[in-house]
Design a binder for these strands. Structure first.
Lengths: 194, 194
DNA sequence: TTGGATAACAAACATTAGTTAGTTTTGGCT
DNA sequence: AGCCAAAACTAACTAATGTTTGTTATCCAA
């Protein structure tokens, strides 16, 4: 007795919600707006989701889980710290390009999560940041990186990738690979010529 | 017959609005919330402002005007392109540190501006980005910068400064000057050691 | 074909939104 | 002291919010 359609309807709602939340914000998106986009009445959506904030939680935690599991994999490889950071930057860029709306929501609208979800999400983010920072710190200790403040480097890198959501459209002059190469050049080697 | 208190009340509303908009978003902030923060009834605020979206517009255009005028000044100096970019990065950091909530609102909530204000704001932003990009392009042409994609460099720099709003508190371990030095190091010279 | 769950609907709920109207209080000027 | 405008208040309005209720339609399994 499989019900692939039920999962599919729920995920359709989640996908459309991510797009609307990204464009209009969580508070700026009404359940009727979302229903219109999905193609049903607002009341009907409650057959697939429990509440509006459950939609938000679903989107946010799917993304944070993804980041954390990928960070674990990348950390465990035998690559240099520079290559690990590059892999993480590529991960961020790929996720943003492939799953843009959901990533945007996880970046901006997580603050509308009600407790206790809010606390859980903050902790997940902190876990990720700690793991990322540890790589930068180890890279500095190993002499691979410049001795900058770790938090500054961490957040500069994390933020430097967020503009993609506002700017990048697949099929622009730039391919995803060129995008990666250019961003990594600026962040790892710097804008100025040596 | 001066009325300094009237200006002051309006600016108190704008200042509190920027803080609330930053924390809860424009749609997530009610006029009653704001009134509570200001210390009056919601209806009373209409003696000082015309409408909720006028508050938003006031905040956004004050910031965009500031950026554009500063860009003009910096562009007109005789410094190297590297120094001009550094001066702009410093400007962004200083504004974020000194006027954080308003800068955050101009960064995130401008999209809730109603037309025709929305179009005007987008154009102002485009003007600023064009001017900033011109400096990067000239720097590349002069051989000062690496030959990266100009848009990528531009947005990477602009975004790299936004995390400050979420992270920096005056009186943290890092002074504003150290913050500037570290961010400029990462962006201009790169994380990796040469 | 029919029974029972799944999912759609229209209608309504209580609450909150931004804003206006009407009235009272405040505070400086003559 | 007394006036007058600025600015505060209470009350109310309409529209929109998230969600619930009760009912109908859909659809697969027996």
């Amino acid at each position: 007795m499989l019900k692939p359609e039920k999962i599919s309807k729920r995920q359709l709602i989640l996908a459309e919600a991510a797009k609307l939340f990204k464009d209009r914000g969580y508070s700026g998106t009404s359940m009727r707006d979302l229903a219109g986009q999905v193609g049903m009445e607002a009341a009907s959506m409650y057959n697939h989701i429990k509440a509006k904030d459950e939609i938000l939680a679903s989107i946010c935690f799917r993304i944070s889980d993804l980041y954390i599991s990928q960070l674990g994999e990348i950390s465990a490889t035998a690559a240099s710290y520079g290559d690990k950071i590059k892999a993480l930057i590529r991960l961020h860029i790929r996720l943003m390009v492939e799953d843009g709306p959901a990533v945007s929501v996880a970046n901006h609208d997580w603050k509308y999560l009600p407790e206790p979800k809010l606390g859980e999400f903050k902790q997940a983010r902190k876990t990720y940041e700690k793991g990322f920072a540890a790589l930068i710190e180890a890279g500095i200790a190993a002499g691979e990186f410049q001795p900058v403040n770790v938090s500054v480097a961490l957040f500069t890198i994390l933020s430097a990738v967020r503009w993609i959501e506002l700017w990048y459209r697949p099929g622009r002059e730039l391919s995803a690979e060129e995008l990666e190469a250019n961003i990594i050049t600026v962040l790892l080697h710097g804008l100025e010529r040596k």
